[in-house]
């Protein structure tokens, strides 16, 4: 199995296991799910440090998108605490 395939399979396996846990605990908070997926994705990407530099450069853009989404979720949560009403989901 090539390194790229190992990376995708690792990510897919972790996401699948997390989804099973979400279903088992009957989670009702979508922003929490998204936050956990984003953190898992960032960790797995960091663990594959030997990826081709070109792949790493392209994955930086994915990480930027995911991190921006993470910041958006955090800001929305803070706003929810301050304003007393949810902004997202």
């Amino acid at each position: 199995m090539t390194l790229y395939n190992r990376y995708i399979v690792s990510l897919a396996l972790i996401f699948s296991l997390t989804s099973v846990v979400f279903a088992l605990v009957a989670i009702a908070n979508l922003d929490l799910c998204l936050t956990i997926y984003i953190i898992e994705s960032l960790i797995v990407t960091e663990l594959f440090i030997y990826l081709n530099p070109r792949a790493k450069r392209n994955l930086i853009w994915v990480n930027v998108i995911l991190f921006s989404l993470f910041i958006l979720l955090v800001v929305a949560k803070i706003a929810e605490i301050i304003l007393g009403q949810g902004l997202l989901f």
């Binding site: 799910c33 392209n58 994915v62």
Partner: peptide, 21 residues
């Protein structure tokens, strides 16, 4: 359904990663 929506979100993340690769 939040868990199934979360599965969809994980597919989107995987899709972005595959696009980068």
């Amino acid at each position: 359904s939040i868990p199934l929506t979360a599965v969809g979100a994980s597919m989107l993340i995987l899709g972005l990663v595959c696009l980068a690769l």
